[in-house]
Every structure is written in C-alpha cells, then in structure tokens.
C-alpha cells in the first residue's frame, strides 16, 4: 500500500458511494447531483492515476456539460422536489437489476482482478504526458479523431432535427387548440359529430337555443 493507493482508495470510495446513491436515491435531481459527485471524484481518480489531461477533460465535459444537460433535462421534464416513488421500477425488477448488477461486477472482477493482479504503474515518471497524448491523437489516431468530429456534427444536427420536428407538430396542435370545435383532424369520428351538431344548431336560428 503506497500513499497513492491510499488516496485512490479514498477517492474511489467516494466515487463508488456517490454512484450507489445516484442509482438508489428517490430524489430525482439528487440522483443527478450524486452523479456529479461521482464523476467529479472519478476525475480525481484519473489525477491520482497520473492522467491529468483525462481528468481535466472529464471535469470539463462530464461535469461541466453533460451533468448540466442532465439537470436541464430533468427540470424540463418537471422533476419534483422531494422523494418520489415513481422513478423506480417494480420491486422484482429492481431485485433482478441488483442481481444482474452484482453479476456484472462479479464477472468483471473475476476477469480483471487476475489480469491486473500485481500490476503496478510507476507514476513518478508518467509514461503519458499531455504532449505525448497530443502527438498520439494527431499522429496515430488522427483518422478516428476526424471521424469523431463528423460524429459530433451528426449528433448536433440530429439533436436539432429531432427537437425541430416536434416543434412543428406542437405548432399544429396549438393551432388546433385555438378552435375547440375542430380539435384534431385525425379524430374524424368525433369531429364529424361535433360539426354536425354545430351545423344543426346554426341552421335553426329560430328555435331559441342559439339566441
């Protein structure tokens, strides 16, 4: 047990604990906040592992952007304050989930621990510094990198397009909402009845129902 081991255990414990809380808490927004803590401390774990750039990028992208987006989405979907039972699946499914999660952990641990048993990294002379990573990205990995930029563009356009379509439909719905007599042209049966009723009323001005 070196000092770094101890630090890592501490940071890792925070990570694991907050991750556990983020998947079990009944408060919707708290889950996202615990995720924030977990990802932030994971950035710390990367620092401990000597990957400074990865840690900072983790902080910049995950904590600064992704969690903010998640919080944003939660608030847009009317996340309630306080504990909320309806964010969880039925009990049997949760049990199954726990079993599966445990199985996953066990499976991975049974594979990884023997692989990494006894392996150590000498972090006083880190093998990968920021300039080296930069050279690797723009040298060996330049094509995947370019592909990734295309992926980002596609994701951007895709997200925009998805939200755009709905906005238009929304507009149509709103337009319909202005005319309560014709709520929805797909709902033809109902619509027809109401239209007939309307004509019946308007075509009998002398009955007194209208005036």
């Amino acid at each position: 047990m070196t000092t770094r081991d101890i630090v890592f255990v501490a940071v890792g414990a925070v990570t694991a604990l907050s991750a556990l809380l983020s998947v079990t808490t009944k408060h919707v927004v708290h889950a996202a906040l615990w995720l924030l803590v977990s990802l932030g401390s994971l950035a710390g774990a990367y620092l401990v592992l000597g990957q400074e750039l990865v840690g900072l990028v983790q902080l910049l992208v995950y904590v600064g952007a992704i969690v903010v987006l998640v919080l944003f989405a939660l608030m847009l979907t009317r996340a309630p304050i306080g504990p909320h039972a309806e964010i969880d699946t039925p009990r049997w499914q949760r049990v199954a989930g726990a079993v599966l999660g445990g199985a996953t952990t066990a499976l991975l641990a049974s594979l990884l621990l023997p692989l990494f048993a006894g392996a150590t990294a000498d972090l006083d002379r880190p093998s990968t510094t920021t300039p080296q990573i930069a050279q690797a990205i723009f040298g060996t990995w330049v094509w995947p990198f370019e592909l990734l930029s295309v992926l980002l563009l596609v994701a951007l356009v895709g997200a925009f397009a998805v939200s755009r379509i709905v906005l238009q439909r929304d507009g149509a719905d709103r337009h319909d909402a202005d005319h309560p007599d014709h709520p929805d042209h797909h709902d033809s049966h109902d619509d027809g009845d109401r239209t007939a009723a309307t004509t019946a009323v308007t075509s009998e001005p002398g009955t007194g129902r209208v005036g």
């Binding site: 904590v63 510094t129 920021t130």
Partner: peptide, 24 residues
C-alpha cells in the same frame, strides 16, 4: 501543468450551483 483546462473546467462547474439553487 494544464492549468488553462483546469480553470475552464472548474468555471464550468460553477453553473451547477445556480441550477441547484434555482431548482431547490
């Protein structure tokens, strides 16, 4: 080493305080 990235990263975290405050 990468202090610029660090500064930008932590400044980005600041918004979460506002979000928390507003929602809570």
């Amino acid at each position: 080493d990468a202090s610029v990235v660090l500064v930008l990263a932590v400044i980005g975290v600041g918004v979460i305080g506002t979000l928390m405050a507003g929602w809570a």
